[in-house]
Design a protein around this nucleic acid. Structure first.
Length: 429
RNA sequence: GCGGAAGUGGCUCAGUUGGCAGAGCAUCUGAUUGUGGCUCAGAGGGCCGAGAGUUCAAAUCUCUCCUUUCGCCCCA
């Protein structure tokens, strides 16, 4: 201790508390229960549809994301957490899950083992954006991918699953928006026509859209500022450029949705931020969660696996933002504990510990006070724990240890032999 | 990366023209009640985000920085 300098009133730097990283959240019980609910419901429903869980690493080589998401996207350009490994090769925390799943699919040659692969995962993703409501730097997504089928029924099944899932969570007031993005045959023609039209009105576009016109012209379509401009009413629509195959595919998908009472809004302005999407595109929106309206989004990505060096296998999938779902979910109550063990006498502490352990091994849930406290504060703790039964363990005049079981709902109290405790509490359920 | 707003006990926030740092809730203690929830009394707990400046005097005024938050951008 003599090495320590005299402590004055100055605060030593070591005593400063370490802060949480901006955009990274701590989830305490209330939020944690919401995530547990979302995950449990997800596992149940997704597996009912034949999807299997896959867990992929949260880091991949940066190149994987660059090639799948698109080198020009903001996500790749400036939002990824990227570090060199010991050989100097860049690796990144995943900003989304699809790329990693595609890589795993190719690595494991799943296409050779089964014609169709239905996979889902959920977990943390990382994007270094400015945090705001519904947008964290570490955020969580549920991700669902259906690989190996280009059939419209696959598209409809994926959307049906998504709608089933949010319904099971008890969410209403969500809007499904749909659009057809076409294929590498027809989309470039539309894109060219759009750029040609918008270039003629470039002077009237907002500053963001002037930039978008060159980086991602389809994005101009869903600009909030320019949407109501007069010349936007005359903007070329994709429907006039779509090839017959894409048109037929999309009509079948939307027909299936209509037949099954899955309502949606046809939104010609709906586009995706990531490069790999084609044909069927959809987004699930809510107006109740702030500026970030998208709760889930997805679509078809038929060329992606081949682009990543895999076989030419089509795919469709979606990602669902769990923080955004959580904003819409009602608070969930923790499961009620069966008992709270109060020890009234120092000589009973070991017995209290043993009885608590026996009750737990028998499948009952509960806690015990760790030390003998005053009856008042002990009862207070018992009350706060919310447990159904308070167990009072103490010694009588003959120094025998006795347990009293108090029913916290009815206020009744009965003495119970130690050997009967498990049976008594189990029987009361 | 760019804007707006806000930082005062654990939490939610008052704090007047600059003049001793406050309330409610929570926590703990005590009283009362049959051994918890109600009521009453009391206590602990603060570098007023950080640093400079103005002033006899700054939580308060000025500047800088930091953090948080809501938007823009982007995305789920």
């Amino acid at each position: 201790m003599f090495l320590c300098p005299a402590q004055g009133t100055e605060k030593s730097p070591n005593s400063m508390s370490i802060k949480r990283i901006n955009g990274f959240a701590d989830l305490f019980e209330t939020d944690s229960l919401l995530f547990d609910f979302m995950e449990t419901t997800c596992r149940k429903i997704f597996s009912d549809y034949g999807f299997r869980e896959i867990r992929v690493p949260i880091m991949e080589y940066t190149q994987l994301f660059a090639r799948s998401i698109g080198t020009e996207t903001d996500v790749v350009q400036k939002e990824m957490y990227t570090f060199p490994d010991s050989h100097g090769t860049n690796q990144s925390l995943r900003p989304e899950a699809t790329a990693g799943i595609m890589r795993a699919y190719i690595s494991a040659s799943l296409h050779a083992k089964e014609s169709v692969s239905k996979l889902f995962t959920y977990g943390p993703m990382f994007r270094c954006e400015r945090p705001q409501k519904g947008r964290m730097r570490q955020f969580h997504q549920i991700d669902c991918e259906l690989l190996g089928s280009n059939a419209p029924t696959a598209d409809a099944e994926i959307i049906s699953l998504l709608m089933h899932y949010v319904d099971a969570l008890g969410l209403t007031d969500l809007t499904l928006r749909m659009n057809n993005l076409g294929c590498p045959e027809c989309r470039p023609k539309y894109r060219a026509a759009l750029v040609e039209y918008l270039s003629r009105h470039e002077a009237d576009l907002c500053d963001d859209c002037k930039r978008r016109l060159h980086t991602n012209p389809l994005r101009v379509l869903d600009c909030k500022k320019d949407h109501d401009l007069a010349f936007m009413k005359e903007v070329p629509v994709f429907l006039d450029y779509v090839c017959p195959e894409c048109a037929r595919h999309y009509e079948t998908v939307t027909g299936l949705l209509q037949e099954n009472n899955i309502s949606y809004i046809q939104d010609h302005c709906l586009v995706r931020g990531l490069d790999y999407y084609c044909r069927t595109t959809f987004e699930l929106q809510s107006s109740a969660i702030g500026a970030q309206t998208a709760v889930a989004g997805g679509g078809r990505y038929d060329g992606l696996i081949q682009n990543l060096g895999g076989p030419n296998v089509p795919g469709i999938g979606f990602a669902c933002g769990m923080e955004r779902l959580a904003l819409l979910l009602k608070e969930r109550q923790p499961r009620r504990k069966d008992f709270y063990m109060v020890c009234l006498d120092e000589s009973c502490l070991h017995t209290a510990f043993r009885l608590t352990r026996e009750l737990r091994l028998a499948g009952l849930s509960g806690e015990m006070g760790y030390a003998v406290a005053g009856i008042k504060s002990s009862m207070r703790q018992a009350g706060k724990s919310g447990a159904r039964y308070t167990l009072l363990l103490g010694s009588d005049e003959a120094a025998r240890q006795v347990v009293a079981v108090k029913d916290m709902d009815q206020g009744t109290q009965t003495d119970v032999a130690q050997s009967m405790l498990v049976g008594t509490l189990s029987g009361k359920d």
